[in-house]
Simulated scan of single mutants.
Amino acid sequence: MNRNKGLDFHINRRTLVKAGAAALAMPAVFASARAQEKYVAKIAHTEAVGSPLTNAFEAWTKTLNEKSDGRIEAQHFPAGQLGKLGDLLEGSRIGTIQVTTAGPDSEEAIAPEIAAFGGAPGFIYKDEAHVDAVLQGPLGEEASRIAREKTGVEFVAYGETGFRHVLSKTPVTDLDSLKGMKIRVPELRIWVDFWKLLGANPTPLPYTEQYSALSTGIIDALDSDLYSIIGFKWYEQAKNLTLTYHWFLPKAVRVNAAWLDSMPADLQELVRTSAKEHFAEQRKVNRANTEKALEELKSLGVEVHRLSDEQRAKWAELTEPLFADFGSKSPETQQMIDKIRALG
């Protein structure tokens, strides 16, 4: 009887030891399983195929797939393949789209204090050096933090499409030629107000509808960077380009924060670090090829006009009240506008 009790004791002890070892091993098993989990990243935006921004997203997609050893499955959908900009922005907030891009002005309704980073309300950025001082420094990090808290996305990097100009069916050389012109604007109040102050007739339309709107006469003009004019072939419907430099549009690389937080630390670091590297290169390419894009448009039959310094000063003067109006949304918004302008 005693021998059986002793045997039971040894059996139970071995069982406990094995159970303890298994319990100790469980965290490692879970960690290993989590490390091998695949994280799908739908990268969707409305930028034109062949543009520097789209090329940067294509290169970044490849980097995420290769350097994650397949743990991130990045899929790239440019040129509105998965929907209009508003749909993609909402998808990035709720997580059905993991990555998209837009100007920070797209946050006007939710976080107006960071909308000014998107160029609102016009003439806020003096030049590209001013843009870099704002977005590649503490203010850019602050904008990302605010976006995370209020919209559920993190700005992991900033690309750009550059300064916007006016593409129109008839030449725009002064305020008189702009008067009453139906110009497409995003569905944001600040853009509507900007063009109203200049005497134009702003017409809110989704980004992807601009070609058909030009062809049918719904609009007479649009404002855009040079690369999008080429990529979406808007020059086929409007043959006059006026270099106005009225609005510089950075593009925040927006990543759903919950998706980012769900990944292991090494993958989070890969997403953030590789994004900064690819879009730093994108900014260089974008700026280096501006003149080349302008020459290409000329070869496609576009007549190029330049807004005189005097006229540009008048445009800036007429739209100056928008800074106070936009800043009235909240003390934080006015403070952010002041910080941005002070760096210029």
Rank of each mutant, 00 (worst) to 15 (best):
I94D: 15
A147P: 04
Q237I: 10
E281D: 12
A213F: 01
A342Y: 08
E310I: 14
W195A: 11
Q98Y: 04
G137S: 11
V302T: 09
R341C: 03
A74H: 08
A74E: 11
A74N: 08
K233I: 13
E73Q: 12
K182C: 05
L88K: 00
Y227C: 03
S330M: 03
S51D: 07
E320A: 09
T208G: 15
K239S: 11
S68L: 07
I190Y: 13
T216L: 00
N2D: 14
S168Q: 07
G180F: 01
R3T: 11
L214Q: 04
L300Y: 11
S32K: 06
M336K: 03
I94R: 12
T96S: 10
E58D: 09
F194E: 13
K62P: 10
V40W: 06
E296H: 12
P206A: 07
P321T: 00
K329G: 09
G86C: 06
A213N: 02
G50H: 01
T216N: 12
A22F: 09
M26T: 15
E149N: 04
V17L: 15
T208A: 12
K42I: 15
G140C: 03
M26C: 15
K284W: 12
V40P: 05
E236T: 09
S274E: 15
I229Q: 02
L294E: 09
L64C: 10
S51R: 05
G118V: 03
N65R: 04
R184T: 15
A342F: 02
Y158T: 07
V192E: 15
V166R: 08
F232W: 09
E73G: 06
E209T: 14
R164W: 11
A25N: 13
R148A: 02
H76W: 07
Q268A: 00
R184I: 10
R184K: 13
F326N: 01
E317C: 06
P138F: 02
T203K: 12
I340A: 03
W191P: 08
E295S: 10
G86M: 04
G180K: 05
P52Y: 01
M181P: 09
G140A: 03
N55A: 01
K284T: 15
L214I: 01
K42P: 08
E291C: 11
Y158C: 10
G122I: 02
L270G: 00
R341I: 11
K38V: 14
A313H: 06
N289Q: 14
L7V: 11
L270C: 00
V49S: 07
V99G: 01
V99C: 01
L243K: 13
L249F: 05
L188M: 03
L197M: 12
I183W: 01
E47T: 00
A129H: 06
I340C: 04
T15K: 11
L226W: 00
N65C: 04
Q136P: 06
T151K: 06
G118K: 00
I219Q: 04
A221H: 02
G231V: 01
G119E: 05
Q136Y: 13
M1I: 06
